[in-house]
């Protein structure tokens, strides 16, 4: 059934109650009505925290070392991430954007905070900030420079504004100087900001 407009009293309740108190009251009502069981909340937290940027880093390291896996990751991301225990059943579809020589990707959600949570977990604080949401689409080069990210001259930046049903992740380029490294060593180089495109992985000098 479609949403009914809220009464003036209910709007006022939402606009004037401290959110922490409102949330505590909301939980009590939901528990009392049997709509949610208290133990579901810690169980869900545990489930959510299984996803993390470490999984994204492992996916990237596998793609860097296994050409068949890389092809699968780009063509069928949902199948590819299953190799790391991530199920996207019921989650939004995942798209993987491949950085190449001359082509860099940067992901933002200007309307809210859409993020591939099923793989990477909670979005970083900066990704949700008003400054990031405002600037990424308008001044991506200035933003990257501010974080010390240097792209080779002539690199085009594609900014992806994640507005709808897909969730996007960047497949960064493997840094030079990592020839012969195994997956574990490579995955330790990959940070969450590399998977969004604000930074690029670098081998230690």
């Amino acid at each position: 059934m479609a949403h009914a407009p809220l009464s003036a009293a209910d709007r006022k309740l939402l606009e004037t109650t401290p959110p922490e108190a409102l949330f505590a009251a909301l939980k009590r009502v939901l528990f009392a009505k049997g709509l949610v069981a208290p133990e579901e909340i810690p169980a869900q937290i545990a489930q959510t925290e299984r996803a993390s940027p470490l999984i994204g880093a492992q996916i990237v390291a596998r793609a860097w070392t296994d050409p068949a896996y890389r092809a699968l990751l780009l063509a069928e991301p949902a199948r590819a991430v299953e190799a790391f225990g991530v199920s996207l059943t019921g989650a939004p579809p995942l798209g993987v954007l491949e950085n190449r020589p001359g082509q860099h990707h940067l992901i933002v959600c200007t309307l809210c905070s859409c993020y591939p949570r099923a793989v990477l977990g909670y979005p970083p604080f900066w990704y949700k900030s008003a400054a990031y949401r405002a600037r990424a689409v308008r001044d991506p080069r200035g933003l990257l420079a501010e974080w010390g990210t240097v792209l080779p001259a002539g690199t085009e930046i594609t900014v992806v504004d994640s507005t709808a049903d897909y969730r996007w992740m960047v497949l960064p380029m493997r840094p030079s100087g990592t020839e012969g490294w195994d997956e574990a060593r490579l995955s330790a180089l990959v940070r969450v900001s590399d998977l969004i495109g604000m930074t690029v992985p670098e081998a230690p000098a």
Binding site: G154, E156, T158, V160, D161
Partner: peptide
């Protein structure tokens, strides 16, 4: 050297 990709219905 920039372009923008956006999901639109």
């Amino acid at each position: 050297g920039e372009t923008l990709l956006v999901e639109i219905f």
